[in-house]
Nucleic acid binder design. Structure first.
Lengths: 323, 323
DNA sequence: CTGTTAGCGCATTCAA
DNA sequence: TTGAATGCGCTAACAG
């Protein structure tokens, strides 16, 4: 930067200003500075900038997994918004583990982000303490909470499970099963499923798959569910991936869908519309949730709002041929 | 940190050392320091550390899109490796645009990463210049290159397209079509496809889809391809997603696969094994590619190797029922 | 094994 | 509109 300043015949302070508040520098010197920057190939050091100003322009984000999953769309939404506002997203994955989330929280806080986006509302006490001591705005996503750390941008997973189950009941299905992963949010959806059945005094049939939403496990566990409860005439899956896996298993068995068994998913992924028959599913605004989370976060950081807020982005049952 | 030092009765220098090189501090003081850290709730400032040491322990990575895609597995591989070695991954997406890649390169370099992982080997001249001036190790992935910036960990997209096409020829298909996106790597695969057909003096039938690997476009464009060239008896798709989309379109039309038309994909995603019939595909070690890229990068950063190297991670044709 | 001195590259605060 | 002094929190290089 001093090289640039020398070349432009000004002090480094003026260069710094020209970069951050161009209006407060005379048009003439500004042009000289810009030319000097080009000639020297100067790339501002945001690390030093962050240290000096105590504002890094970095937003940290923790998601359960980086690998190809549902959460990436939320990351994209957040990233798109942040980029247009001069912030960079720093993403880490917890591997679906609260312990790892706690550890990652500390690592990320070490980078002094201006804000933090979390997935879910379950966090270890130590992580909660770290966050409150860090005194930076936080947004929790993919769930709602009664005790938010700060702000929340999510939807009710319990409500989602309930809504879909009620839909299946209304459609006339008698023996409704549940196929899902065992993670926190899926369990909440399961609670909603159970609640909806209980309203009608019906029994629950739950089959959990191990690991994330792998399609492999879906076929296998769908099979288990159907063997335990052959009378099942509809299955609610906590993800379209699982539902598609179950559908393929039906194709292998020569079972008609929804004739032999109806299937419903969650997420409204691309695959849901393309599969034959297309999947009834629950649409969640994944991308928009990320965008809104980032928006709420910047509002807090730049002090346009002075206390945590909660945004329910909702969901919507999309009825298609599979159920 | 001074608080910690005071509480432990040592200088801040000793605290700094206890954190980075525990062995060079006496076990006794180390314990005192650790306790003090716990009491104060000290979280080391990696921004200041980065500025002082000129080593940020950050690796930047540019991928075409953050949203749910093939590249996320590579990100996960890199992230997993880096984490166990004390580095953090900073990911940005170029939106499949070289212009955006160039811009993002500058932004990311501003964070002073210790190394950089790129997707692909096509970069704008200005981006290349920025990178060489930054003088940090770089690894290009998802392709091989004759003029690497530094190191490369990838495979030949052209070779992959050629290998799959040859496989289809060997299997006895006469009229082989190509369905793919228009991005750089898919185009190389197409070149390989064309080369393989040329060996036999056969004509190419290429149908490009717009945008990324959306399943929606797959069915539509597969239809276009089949209408233009009804005699087509096999289609090579540059992604399993596209192949699955084409398969579903066949199901809608009541076409037997591979009876009416055979389908081959690329990627060996979960979906490839689950769909009915399972997809013949080209396996690419996506996760491993990210891991190896990170490994090669750290070797360069920590100066265990003194010049750029090229790693060909290869690919493998996986024959299944669809072709 | 531990402490001292100096400075990383920039931004804040003031004064000119 | 511009510049000078000072410090952000930490570490490199040395000395003890």
């Amino acid at each position: 930067m001093v090289d640039v300043a020398r070349l432009a015949g000004v002090s480094s302070m003026t260069v710094s200003r020209a970069l951050r508040e161009p209006d407060r520098v005379s048009p003439d010197t500004r042009r000289r500075i810009e030319r000097a920057i080009g000639r020297v190939g100067y790339v501002p050091d945001l690390v030093a900038s962050g240290l000096a100003s105590q504002r890094t322009k970095v937003i940290a984000m923790i998601i359960p997994t980086l690998a190809n999953s549902i959460f990436n769309d939320t990351v994209q939404g957040a990233s798109d918004f942040l980029r247009t506002h001069g912030y960079q997203l720093l993403v880490g994955d917890s591997g679906y583990s609260e312990e790892e989330e706690e550890h990652l929280t500390m690592t990320l806080l070490g980078r002094r982000p201006d804000g933090l986006i979390l997935t879910g509302t379950d966090h270890r006490p130590r992580a909660r303490r770290l966050l409150s001591e860090a005194a930076i705005p936080v947004v929790e996503t993919w769930e709602l909470s009664n005790q938010p750390l700060d702000s929340v941008v999510g939807f009710s997973n319990r409500g989602a499970g309930q809504a879909m189950t009620r839909y299946l009941i209304e459609r006339g299905y008698e023996h409704i099963g549940f196929l899902g992963t065992a993670d926190r949010r899926a369990v909440r959806r399961c609670n909603g499923y159970e609640a909806a059945l209980k309203e009608k005094g019906r029994p629950a049939r739950v089959q959990l798959t191990e690991g994330p939403n792998w399609m492999q496990g879906a076929g296998l566990n769908f099979g288990k569910l159907m063997e335990k409860h052959p009378e099942t005439d509809a299955v609610f899956c906590t993800s379209d991936i699982l539902a598609a896996g179950a559908l393929f298993e039906c194709q292998r068995r020569g079972w008609a869908v929804p004739g032999r068994v109806a299937l419903a998913g969650l997420g409204d992924f691309d695959i849901a519309t393309e599969v034959v028959p297309p999947l009834t599913t629950l649409r969640i605004p994944r991308y928009e949730m990320g965008r809104r989370a980032a928006e709420v976060l910047l509002d807090r950081i730049e002090e346009r709002v002075d206390s945590g807020i909660t945004v329910d982005v909702g969901f919507e049952v999309i009825a298609r041929a599979s159920a």
